[in-house]
Amino acid sequence: MNVLDFAHSFFGDPAHWHGYDGIPTRLVEHITYSLEALLLAAVIALPVGLVTGHYGRGGNALALIATAGRALPSFGLLVLMFIWLGFGLVPVMIPLVVLAVPPILVTTYEAMRSVDPSPVDAARGMGMSEARVLFQVEVPVALPLILSGLRTAAIQIISTATIAAYVSLGGLGRYIIDGLYQRDYEKVVGGATLVAALALATLALFWAASRLAVSRGVRGSA
């Protein structure tokens, strides 16, 4: 049997389509964890990245934090938090947020730094307030890069959220962990396929969002 056969029999089994261990339930769980983690990470990293990028200060400190965040192993952090905090969503959220903050932080900072300084100078010269300069001049131009940072973070979260199953939570990781213990490769392949599909759907969503949100003038000149 090869990978395609596993996937075929997994998705062909009607038992996998309903109930608490059905695909819809697991998919919703997975999306919920991922969205929560992404939102948390964005709430932490976006303002910091925007403000440090706007003023052009603290880039080195940011790079240090980002490196440290990347170096912390997600799986290890999950197990450690599980031992310390016990069963629950928090031990899962911590490693996912730690994973997602560095790409958002660094990309947002870089995006703000890469904005051509002369329109910013012109905007100040015209009498725009700092907040206006930030949101009406810099962010629209930096948006494609900022979105790419969020996209990278989202893909990593979706892929890594599978480890939540190791500490007895749900999500698509359930199929992979259970499949591993039960030697049920059908389940593992099915779960992996679903995670990959979810990641691709996320990519498509980000692509659509950037089509909608990024000005034609920015896209054209890129």
Binding site: V3, S159, I163, G179, Y185, V188, A199
Partner: peptide, 18 residues
């Protein structure tokens, strides 16, 4: 490469055990 990157490591490991 993007598709490959989105496969969770754990799933990748398990499939290769075979």
């Amino acid at each position: 490469t993007t598709v490959l990157y989105s496969i969770p490591s754990l799933a990748f490991f398990v499939v290769l055990i075979d």
